[in-house]
Design a protein around this nucleic acid. Structure first.
Lengths: 256, 256
DNA sequence: CGAGAAGTTGACGAACCTCAAACGATGTGG
DNA sequence: CCACATCGTTTGAGGTTCGTCAACTTCTCG
């Protein structure tokens, strides 16, 4: 049961035991958040570095008419922009969705990490690139896929990202969103989300009930959605046989 | 007529004359590209750093069914991911749209810049943050706005970004895309793009003919689109009175 | 002048939204 | 313990937005 952030960064660089220690020393103070708590409001000056340990946090923007759109989901191991301190004000807000646990690392500590340690710098930069790649894929998802494929694609991505940090076994994973919020991330109305979900359920592709996604056959769902995990730039072990991941802590099949 | 990349970076950090010289020395070798030339294909290993000097380059992804989606437009002064060398393969392709002029800076030169010069590092990181912010705004654009507002919003953004590097005067700017390609960036069919354009034209909000966007009244268009430039994190001078920009080369009204 | 590419228009259908109502679960105060 | 409110989910009906198909026009370039 390693720290999910370390689990994640292992995909981007080969961390030494010392790197682990450095990271862990900065991640000590954990904070528990209730559902729908505000971390940062749009317009606020950027704060320290948030690292999600458990639960889900979202980035979101609100339009003039009050419409809210979710532009990213941060899962365990994810953290928000390392360099955001350069900006004067946030162009989006951060809120928890379900209950969650996270750490705030002071900015100067992060600066220390990335200025002193080339491996950590590489790992953090890798993570930033992946975040951007995910944004691009979400853009394609909204721009070029219909509701059912769009939703299926999101489920595939979340599954892959969770598996990559060792979460979500046996064909399912927790996703503490309401259908309303799912709609806000997929650009769909609540009603249409509901109909799309029942369609996926009926075709035996995926179910989403009481905050849990179940996927009976991931290959079938991935094929349906046109999902290909290349853009996540994970080490290859995420595919197949996830049991191996659980036991062999942090092993990577391919060198950088 | 400064270099557009320098123009752009001035928004993110206060560059000295020496910084200018450093940048310019790396930007000497320019390359001319015909329309629709391929810079990098999806799946290729990342190449050096591209800097656009004139014209427009796009990032795009293609789906299984051959559908293409444009996930970013790179305007003069823009460059692609400084750290992309960390990834094994590109998750998207890069192509020119109209004819354009660009530079390829070798990766080791870029590494030199950002490791030796704190100001340049800050400026480049700022640019990366802005790229991500733009992606998020595009996501909202696709997810939460209808065709006319969506298109209007894109026009507002492009205008702002071009003005920020001193291009596109007197109520218009070049945009060398076909309606097909405009549709690929907005997630709309060609037919609908055409109808939306004629709607904007009819309401006197904007016109797009033979690769040129004209905006009679930017405030009206921005209001229509719900456009607010905060997410571009530009120095404040972009607003109003762009004539001042043309004459006072690189001057900034607000310190970092 | 001819051929191909881009733009334009109409008709029709599909995807998706809005409004509205009902249902179930959960929690709260009397 | 029940009445009641609240929140999330579900379902129906009808309208709007947008896509597809197909034809036609205009522009560009050789």
């Amino acid at each position: 049961m390693t720290n999910p952030m370390i689990r994640k960064l292992e995909h981007g660089a080969r961390l030494t035991a010392e790197d682990h220690a450095t990271l862990l020393s900065g991640l000590k103070a954990t904070r528990r958040l209730p559902p729908h708590a505000t971390l940062i409001r749009e317009g606020d000056p950027p704060d320290g570095l948030f690292v999600v340990l458990k639960g889900v946090v979202c980035r979101h923007k609100v339009l003039r008419d009050g419409e809210r759109h979710i532009v990213a989901l941060l899962l365990p191991g994810d953290f928000c922009d390392v360099h955001a301190g350069l900006l004067k004000s946030m162009d989006h807000g951060l809120s928890s969705l379900g209950p969650c646990v996270l750490t705030t690392v002071p900015r100067n500590v992060v600066s220390d990490w990335i200025s002193r340690n080339a491996t950590l710098r590489q790992a953090m930069n890798w993570a930033a690139l992946v975040d951007e790649a995910i944004l691009r894929e979400w853009l394609v998802n909204l721009g070029a896929r219909r509701a059912p494929q769009r939703m299926a694609h999101l489920f595939c991505e979340l599954r892959a990202r969770l598996y990559a940090v060792g979460e979500g076994r046996d064909g399912g994973f927790p996703l503490p969103l309401t259908q309303e919020e799912l709609g806000q991330t997929l650009g769909l109305s609540v009603v249409h989300v509901n109909r799309t979900l029942s369609q996926l359920r009926q075709e035996g592709l995926a179910t989403f009930r009481s905050g849990v996604v179940r996927i009976p056959d991931i290959d079938r769902l991935a094929d349906f959605a046109g999902f290909s995990p290349a853009y996540l730039h994970l080490a290859p072990f995420w595919q197949k046989d996830q049991a191996a991941v659980a036991s062999s802590d942090g092993v990577r099949m391919a060198a950088s």
